[in-house]
Computed example of a mutant assay.
Amino acid sequence: MTTFREAVEARDAAAIEALLADDVVFTSPVAFKPYPGKALTAAILRGVLRVFGEDFRYVREIADAGGRDHALIFEVTVDGKTVNGCDFLHYDDEGRIDSLTVMVRPLSAAQALAEAMGAQFPRIQEEALAAAQIQP
């Protein structure tokens, strides 16, 4: 099975989505409320892949001994700002990601990311609605 890191580094949206639990909750670094559900989370992550340029890279990975919690530290440039961030993943009993929390710094980079992702949101909403309609 492909890991989340491998899927993101390969920019493989289908592999990323396959790793998500149906009840996954995505907590954004720039939104107040978490986003629930696989369709919306997958659409958001596709938006992230569009926003993050080719210079995206994971620089460190930390995992607990049980393998259910991971922290993936990354760097990327968004709108000329260097973003330092971390993806915090939790895996459920079936090995699917049921919680994904992203944190970024510094504030100016978080603001650039918020603006870039805001521009993606109409497409994200369309993709999530379309996916929700075809799911059983």
Score class of each variant (00 low, 15 high):
18 A>N: 05
3 T>A: 06
116 A>M: 06
95 G>L: 06
65 A>M: 08
123 R>Y: 08
128 A>N: 05
43 A>G: 03
62 I>N: 04
97 I>V: 15
42 A>R: 01
37 G>M: 06
77 T>Q: 05
77 T>R: 06
65 A>C: 03
37 G>D: 07
67 G>A: 10
114 A>S: 15
15 A>E: 13
10 A>S: 14
65 A>Y: 04
25 V>W: 03
102 V>E: 05
23 D>N: 15
117 M>T: 02
121 F>D: 00
15 A>S: 15
79 D>T: 07
72 L>S: 02
31 A>L: 15
113 L>A: 02
14 A>H: 03
14 A>T: 11
26 F>R: 02
21 A>M: 05
76 V>I: 12
26 F>V: 03
65 A>Q: 13
93 D>I: 10
116 A>N: 09
125 Q>K: 06
136 P>D: 12
72 L>G: 03
76 V>Q: 13
60 R>Y: 06
3 T>D: 07
87 D>L: 00
124 I>K: 00
49 L>P: 00
117 M>C: 04
103 M>R: 12
65 A>R: 11
7 A>N: 04
16 I>H: 02
112 A>V: 05
55 D>E: 08
128 A>H: 04
8 V>Y: 11
3 T>R: 05
49 L>Q: 11
12 D>S: 10
9 E>I: 06
82 T>W: 00
17 E>H: 08
101 T>M: 07
121 F>Q: 08
112 A>C: 09
1 M>G: 13
127 E>A: 14
80 G>K: 11
108 S>N: 11
119 A>R: 15
11 R>Q: 10
85 G>F: 03
78 V>C: 01
42 A>C: 07
20 L>Y: 03
17 E>Y: 01
1 M>T: 12
30 V>S: 09
17 E>M: 05
79 D>G: 10
67 G>D: 08
92 D>N: 15
128 A>I: 09
37 G>V: 04
79 D>P: 00
8 V>W: 14
21 A>P: 04
115 E>A: 14
18 A>L: 02
40 L>N: 01
123 R>H: 11
28 S>N: 07
48 V>R: 02
96 R>H: 12
129 L>M: 14
20 L>R: 00
12 D>N: 15
71 A>L: 12
80 G>N: 08
131 A>L: 08
52 F>Y: 12
47 G>F: 00
24 V>G: 02
132 A>F: 01
65 A>H: 09
31 A>E: 13
109 A>D: 07
132 A>S: 14
82 T>A: 12
26 F>D: 01
28 S>G: 06
6 E>Q: 14
127 E>T: 07
22 D>N: 12
122 P>C: 11
84 N>R: 12
117 M>L: 11
108 S>H: 09
22 D>S: 12
47 G>S: 03
60 R>D: 13
72 L>R: 01
29 P>H: 02
77 T>L: 01
103 M>I: 13
